[in-house]
Design a protein around this nucleic acid. Structure first.
Length: 412
DNA sequence: GGAGGCAACTCGCCGAGCTT
DNA sequence: AAGCTCGGCGAGTTGCCTCC
């Protein structure tokens, strides 16, 4: 399917796989008929063969497609190709196949990328055939690229392209609900770190391997990927301090490095877990280097202790604790976010159980403040006070100045 | 706040390897 | 052979960000 799977220099006749799938051809019959009529008219108008007019239309679509700025890694492209091949075999569109918004996003991104690549490949094959004076092959490739480009525009570029909102509306109308896999709920009912430690101790044969790593997840709520980058832990007066090299970090996202500090609460909550890890620091020096297999073992063990329990469940649980005690900026630093908006997807401060005392979180980057988080009660009261003050002053000033007109928004 | 992009994550399945 | 653990893989989901 990939462009490099078929050398561009080889001019073989178009195979059925290169053309538009029949399902899409039927569904977009009107779009294709209009596009063909338009290409004929353009050809007559500019006195060029219809193939040249089709090629101009293909180029316009490819130019618009490349304006998205997408730049997926090799691994992502490979995943996109698998998604695209499956969808093409099934003969549907991303919206047909997707069951959730996230799934749609993934399939749309995949199909957008691979389809554009395929159209580009067909166009290159047409050009090669033209140079070889193989006119039948040239027309065949151009037609295939043209039809795929026209459906591409309808699916991904047009103003009225299908979006997830349409399907979500239809699903709501039909009384269908999406099943969320968020760990937010699992985080609310997650066992305390102490109870998890006891439960793991009752799992024969596995506990020695997973206990320490599981306690780090339970106490600090770090991401599994962060555990595999290497952790450094040390004792404080009565608690623990953990240095974390962040995952999901690039030039703008995430926190490259953060230091998290916890203290134990009572026995049954986190006192035993903290004591366990303090002993681990005494015995090993505090460095921890988990492999991917270690993380898988912890996931499996947690799942066995409680259905739905996972490192991310504890990430949600500790996020609630951090929100309750550290405020937005502190919670963002705790979670390794670069802004204070992303934490909206995590547990609410009122869900905090206080199983762990969050003492401090220090991140290597400052946390950006955003305006779109729901305001706290104090902020809402301040806003009301400001509005009341503004209303009072504007009523007195109204006679002096004419009402201001709103600046119209740019019409993009 | 919706749309879009991409990396990391979870889950289910399957086969290899080990023990009984 | 049956039962179990473990790790790899594919499919689908979630998280984290920007743009408009």
């Amino acid at each position: 399917m990939r462009s490099n799977s078929t050398p561009a220099t080889k001019t073989t006749p178009p195979s059925p796989g290169d053309g538009l799938p029949e399902g899409l051809r039927t569904r977009y019959a009107d779009t294709l008929a209009n596009a063909h009529t338009l290409a004929q008219a353009e050809g007559l108008r500019f006195r060029v063969p219809v193939g040249v007019a089709q090629d101009r239309a293909i180029r316009a679509v490819l130019d618009e497609a490349s304006a998205s700025g997408a730049n997926p890694s090799a691994a992502t492209v490979a995943a996109y190709q698998r998604d695209h091949a499956r969808l093409r075999a099934a003969g549907g569109t991303p919206l047909d196949h997707a069951g959730t918004r996230a799934h749609f996003d993934r399939l749309r991104s995949a199909c957008r990328w691979v389809e554009a690549d395929e159209i580009r490949r067909l166009r290159t094959l047409a050009e090669t055939a033209r140079k070889a004076r193989d006119l039948d092959a040239m027309r065949g490739y151009t037609l295939a690229a043209f039809e795929r480009a026209m459906v591409y525009r309808a699916l991904y570029l047009a103003q009225d392209r299908p979006t997830w909102a349409q399907k979500a509306h239809a699903m709501r109308a039909a009384g269908l609900r999406q099943v969320s896999k968020s760990k937010r709920f699992a985080g609310r009912r997650a066992l305390s770190p102490d109870r998890l430690l006891v439960a793991l101790g009752q799992q024969p044969g596995r506990c020695a391997r997973v206990e320490a790593l599981a306690m780090v997840f339970a106490l600090f709520g770090i991401r599994p990927a962060e555990a595999t980058r290497g952790l450094a832990m040390e004792k404080t007066a009565i608690g623990l301090r953990l240095a974390v090299a962040g995952a999901k970090v690039d030039a703008v996202r995430g926190q490259p490095l953060r230091v998290l500090e916890v203290e134990p609460t009572r026995r049954g909550q986190s006192a035993i877990a903290v004591a366990f890890l303090r002993a681990y620091v005494d015995a090993t020096g505090g460095d921890m280097d988990a492999s991917r297999a270690d993380v898988v073992a912890v996931r499996r063990a947690m799942r066995q202790v409680q259905p739905g329990l996972s490192p991310y469940a504890y990430r949600h649980a500790r996020a609630s604790d951090a929100k309750a005690s550290q405020g937005r900026a502190g919670a963002a630093a705790w979670l390794g976010h670069s802004n204070d908006r992303t934490q909206q997807g995590y547990g609410h401060a009122r869900s905090a159980k206080g199983a762990v005392t969050i003492k401090a979180a220090t991140a290597s980057r400052p946390v950006r403040q955003t305006k779109t988080l729901p305001p706290t009660l104090a902020e809402r009261l301040a806003q009301v006070a400001t509005r009341l003050a503004a209303r009072t002053s504007s009523q007195s000033a109204q006679k002096a100045s004419p009402p201001r007109r709103r600046t119209p928004r740019p019409g993009w």
